[in-house]
Amino acid sequence: MLLIYNLVTKYTEYRHTLITNLVDFFQHKKPHILEPILTINNLTKKFGYLTAVKDLSFTINKGNVYGILGPNGSGKSTTLGVVLNVVNKTHGDFKWFDGQTTTHDALKKVGAIIERPNFYPYMTATQNLKLVCKIKGVDYSKVEEKLEIVGLLERKDSKFRTYSLGMKQRLAIASALLNDPEILILDEPTNGLDPQGIHQIREIIKQIAEKGTTILLASHLLDEVEKVCSHVVVLRKGVKLYSGRVDEMTSSHGFFELKCNNQSELIKLLEKNTSFKSIKEKDGLISAFLNEPIKSEDFNKYLFENNIILTHLVQRKESLEEQFLQLTDNK
């Protein structure tokens, strides 16, 4: 009895959150009061004949973790370069915060690392960070505090050129955190690192995100974005394909993975059924993509009634990777 009672309450709770989420979605309600940190309007950047970013618009609001996804050369770094004052825009505009401050003053409230960590090789970690303090107008007391966060306190007096790539990248994060930024921008932070280094960086990012810092993470690594981001902007060849919540990225109903002893019969049957939009067979595993929601038990029953007995049945949603490939390939 108790078990059933528990199940029922769990279910009602689940349904409740589901419904509120849905209502929020349809009324475009957001849990936080919207406070824009970065607004980009119709931004275009051309390098000669090549259009690196085309008519891009999106807004970054306080408190969310954003991802910019796109294959290599899709304009992620260029977009970040423009808003970070190192690349000149061709058209369009962008504004930081309320648009009242100049870009370089706004950047003092931003922490950013792009591509590779850039520091003076002949200076020690402390000296490098003090230099950044001077630029940003931050007190030196922050230096040790931030070195501690990224775990470099022991090596603080070693010259930057003696650091491993992972340590360099962690120093870059410490440097970006010096001013307790309103937004942390990370461009491919785990690029070129070994698994241990990747893990360390991700842990640091997670800690920072938990403290409520807004994060903008550009990456081509999907699981990275999937693990930390709540919102995502997908780019391909400088064009925005999608922008919104990660979990609303596709309206797909998922697919079934099937196996049985009589594969050809099964495929024939599925092809006749209008509930499926496409059937794929690979390595003896049939993937049937749904047009409409079907429960696995109903589906199993339906097959059984048609004299097909499954040896394998899994209902899955596409991973972000599959969704991403669909988005970037099909258009």
Partner: peptide, 8 residues
């Protein structure tokens, strides 16, 4: 590049 990003 880093100097400019840092707000110079």
């Amino acid at each position: 590049k880093q100097n400019l990003i840092d707000g110079l």
